[in-house]
């Protein structure tokens, strides 16, 4: 018998909460509540369980209920010098962050958050639990439904439990601010954690052992600051990294993540249109995984 088929009690309860009939909306920390459109009124609200089932420092993995706040998660990991680099509001829930799928401002070094996900248990439209991925740090067993669920806004299933990869907290973290061509600065540095630009100033986050951070900092004539800048939260654009050059001279309020392509801006943005072929594929997925459209109605990834 596979020990991995064991399912925690709160997950079973969540599955019965979701049930198999009527529209349901999963509620997390509501920190990115408006992304993808508000849920239909009258849809029943459910919450994924909170709780860290296991943290194995040696394995650098953590398994928790999707309702766990990322604040609690990182507090637990920090006890062993580890972190999950979500870099978002600590009230946000793990499930919510993954369902929205937006990565934090250190994505440049740590990659998108979907790459931190090892296993997801979700509750499907029929109220049944589905496990995909695996608990180990490396796994290619079966179709990668985890990737599909990250950023799905809960439309394909309600994320119930996740196993994440942790990383060691770097010995030193240093934020710097100065002026210069952000693209040149990015090319000058070796794996910076973040390079931010607002058209006037550049912020750089360097992490690692102290001597490396210092030697990299010495390449720049920047001043040390306590923290990253405040990001405009209303809007978010997703561009090719090189397209960020086109922002120069744009006088509105924005901060761009150099090397990544995300632009935090003051006005809400419509996402780039999908090709018809991709739209058909996505509609087919929705139709198969939630035939009655009862999961998180109102949220929309694929414009009709």
């Amino acid at each position: 018998m596979n020990p991995q088929h064991f399912i925690e009690e709160p997950i079973l309860r969540f599955a019965s909460d979701v049930g198999s009939v009527g529209p349901v909306t999963v509620v997390g920390g509501q920190t990115q509540w408006e992304v993808g459109g508000l849920p239909f009124p009258g849809s029943r609200e459910v919450r994924a369980p909170a709780g860290i089932w296991s943290h194995e420092p040696e394995e650098m993995t953590v398994r928790c209920g999707a309702g766990t706040s990322i604040g609690d998660l990182n507090e637990k990991c920090a006890q062993f010098g580890q972190m999950v680099p979500f870099d978002l509001n600590s009230e946000a829930t793990v499930g919510g962050v993954l369902a929205v799928g937006r990565s934090g401002f250190r994505r440049l070094r740590y990659g998108p958050i979907r790459d931190l996900v090892l296993q997801i248990r979700h509750v499907d439209h029929s109220g049944q639990i589905v496990t995909s991925g695996g608990p180990t740090v490396k796994n290619v067993s079966g179709y990668d439904l985890c990737r599909l669920l990250v950023g799905s806004l809960g439309k394909l299933g309600c994320i119930a439990e996740v196993t994440l990869r942790c990383l060691p907290i770097p010995e030193t973290t240093l934020w710097l601010r100065g002026a210069g061509d952000p693209f040149e600065i990015y090319n000058q540095l070796y794996r910076p954690s973040s390079v931010l630009w607002n058209g006037k100033q550049v912020w750089v986050c360097l992490e690692g052992v102290k001597s490396d951070v210092e030697s990299q900092a010495a390449l720049l004539d920047f001043e040390e600051v306590d923290s990253p800048p405040n990001f405009p939260t209303q809007g978010r654009m997703s561009l090719e990294p090189k397209a960020l050059r086109g922002l120069a001279g744009n006088s509105t309020d924005w901060i761009a993540e150099i090397g990544v392509g995300v632009v935090h801006c003051g006005e809400s943005q419509t996402p780039a249109p999908l090709s018809n072929t991709n739209k058909v594929l996505m509609n087919e997925l929705e139709r198969r995984l939630d035939p009655s459209g009862r999961l998180n109605p109102g949220r929309q990834l694929v414009a009709t």
Partner: peptide, 12 residues
């Protein structure tokens, strides 16, 4: 781009 629209069909 950093965050393509829609589901992550690439990852799937």
């Amino acid at each position: 781009t950093a965050e393509p629209s829609g589901y992550d069909l690439r990852g799937l």
